[in-house]
Amino acid sequence: MNEALTGSVLAAMSTGIGALPILFLKNSISHRWKDILLAFTAGIMMAAATLSLIPEALNYGGILPLSIGLLLGVFTLTLLEKSIPHIDLEHNRKGIEFDQKAMLIVAAITLHNIPEGLSVGVSYASDANDTGNLIAFAIGLQNAPEGFLVALFLMNQKINRFKAFLVATLTGAVEIPMALLGFYLTSIVSTLVPYGLAFAAGAMLYIIYKELIPESHGDGYETTSTYSFIFGLLFMIWLIQIF
């Protein structure tokens, strides 16, 4: 439980760490660098899902729990997407009034962090603690650019820099109770472990293909983003091999 709590806190607080530069940033970063960050984190999450979560789910339960859990993860994210209007943070060039839509965006980002928190919790519930550490690390790396982009968006809506930083940080905080919930449930009911691992993999794969990759290809930097994705993938593979 202590490891799950520590891992979830570190992963969640990565959102705030990513948002930290907003306090010192004078100008917005280029679309090229936004796309590079998004593609790199997509590569990291792809390696974590396919080389850690999916093999662990197979080892614990076999192909049927893997298939059920993975599809449940995908369906859950699909329902979240349909329930919450998605607004493109990266490529929307029109101004958005904060009092009309900014809170909706903050709510959407917060709810999208729920399955990420569950991913960390169920990963720590498995016997392989290395899996929990790797998934927490991967989620943390994904949260950092997300926190930066949310804070940057809020700042562009004339929100105070410190308030933008604080709100972006809080969007990641929901992962902590979700991680503890995921850990608690899978620890009490051990048969849920393979389903939980597969659910986490499905949620991550959905985020990668539905959100991160399309976002990183929205401004004509597809080749640069592709290389960044590959480097992110290799980076995570190196970590898996080392740990």
Rank of each mutant, 00 (worst) to 15 (best):
L239I: 14
Q157P: 03
E3Q: 15
E175W: 02
I109H: 02
H86I: 12
V122A: 05
D127R: 14
F98D: 06
L152D: 13
I208P: 03
A19C: 04
P194N: 10
A42D: 04
A11T: 00
S190I: 11
T6Y: 15
P194W: 09
K101E: 13
L37D: 04
A168K: 05
S14R: 09
R161D: 09
N113L: 00
I230V: 13
E3D: 11
G117W: 01
I159W: 03
E90V: 12
V189C: 07
V174G: 06
V120Q: 02
I54N: 02
N27C: 06
G182R: 05
E97N: 14
G117Q: 01
L38W: 11
G140K: 08
G62P: 02
A11Y: 10
T110Y: 10
L152S: 13
L25K: 10
W238C: 10
N59K: 14
E90D: 15
T223I: 14
F183S: 04
L64V: 15
L51H: 11
L239C: 13
S67F: 08
I207G: 11
H112Y: 13
P55E: 12
Y124T: 00
A173Q: 07
Y60W: 11
P115N: 03
A128C: 06
F235S: 11
A49C: 07
L152N: 12
L152T: 04
I208D: 01
G147W: 02
L141N: 09
V74W: 10
P21D: 07
I114K: 05
A39N: 07
A200H: 05
Q142P: 10
F153W: 11
F153Q: 00
F183P: 07
T78I: 13
F165C: 03
H86P: 10
Y227N: 14
L166E: 05
F183E: 12
I68T: 04
A198E: 13
G202R: 14
I237L: 15
L118T: 05
I207E: 14
L118D: 05
G16R: 06
A203R: 15
G121M: 01
A39C: 08
I159P: 03
T171D: 05
M204Q: 07
T15I: 08
L79M: 15
L77Q: 12
D130R: 15
T6H: 10
A179H: 12
L66G: 00
G132D: 00
I68K: 01
A12D: 05
H112M: 10
